[in-house]
């Protein structure tokens, strides 16, 4: 188990670096955000997690046109992913619109 883990790190050194650096970026970017903006922020971050849609599209692009199981699962995955992305960004925008309206 330990060997496999080390092997994974060895084979994916770049990804491991990026992963760890991204964690720090995420923490640093969010750290000083005022409580007032927590709700839009959560909603915005939620929309960002819809980036999984890229994977769903890849599933469909890689699928054999006769593989109906893969196509249907991929189709549903794309629909759900887009829902997350479009709904998430739109609702965040609506919330932030309200903050802006102040004189």
């Amino acid at each position: 188990m330990m060997n496999e883990f080390l092997e994974f790190i060895e084979n994916n050194l770049q990804i491991t670096y990026i992963l760890i650096l991204a964690v720090f970026v995420g923490v640093e970017v969010i750290k000083s955000i005022p409580a007032v903006l927590h709700t839009p922020l959560m909603s915005g971050a939620n929309a960002l997690s819809g980036v999984v849609i890229v994977g769903a599209i890849l599933v469909m692009l890689h699928a054999d046109p006769t593989d109906y199981v893969a196509l249907s699962l991929g189709f549903v995955a794309v629909v759900l992913g887009v829902l997350n992305v479009v709904g998430g960004f739109a609702v965040t925008d609506r919330m932030l619109q309200m903050f802006k309206r102040k004189k």
């Binding site: 990026i18 992963l19 991204a22 964690v23 720090f24 970026v25 995420g26 923490v27 970017v29 969010i30 922020l41 971050a45 939620n46 960002l48 997690s49 980036v51 999984v52």
Partner: peptide
């Protein structure tokens, strides 16, 4: 990166 950003945030 997108996923990790959301995860850590």
């Amino acid at each position: 990166v997108g996923g990790i950003l959301v995860g850590s945030a």
